[in-house]
Design a protein around this nucleic acid. Structure first.
Length: 110
DNA sequence: GTTATGACTATGG
DNA sequence: GCCATAGCCATAA
């Protein structure tokens, strides 16, 4: 069951986790889904993606990538520019090198 | 109530 | 490495 308040809280925690990623680092949808899900007992990577798509305008959404280090083609260009500015470790294919850049997201109340 | 859809992920060919 | 398939959770129609 999902009330409006719970959805709002879920959104805030996801944004909070995204903001916990420092410059030059990146995390994955799955990692955020895990820390937030551990707190609320629900959710999943697809929900995290939906949240960032709708409410990610105020957070560094480009530091949240897919499990293989890539980003959706539609946002690939902007993200790549941000990576160059921040010095995010990249792999030859233009995807993020999660082996070096992965950051474990955290929540404030944690 | 059922179906389609999404900024996902793991697995197999 | 790319493509297809099957799970996945919640929302929207």
């Amino acid at each position: 069951m999902t009330t409006a308040e719970e959805r709002e809280l879920y959104v805030e925690l996801v944004l909070q986790a995204a903001e916990s990623v420092p410059r030059g680092r990146a995390t994955t949808y799955g990692a955020i889904a895990e820390v937030v899900g551990r707190r609320l007992g629900r959710g999943g990577p697809r929900l995290v993606g939906s949240v960032l798509a709708r409410h990610g305008g105020a957070v560094p959404w480009w530091r949240v990538v897919r499990a293989d280090g890539s980003l959706p083609p539609s946002h690939d260009a902007e993200a790549r520019q941000a990576y160059l500015e921040e010095g995010t470790p990249l792999r030859p294919g233009g995807t993020v090198d999660l082996g070096r850049a992965f950051w474990q997201p955290t929540l404030q109340a944690q």
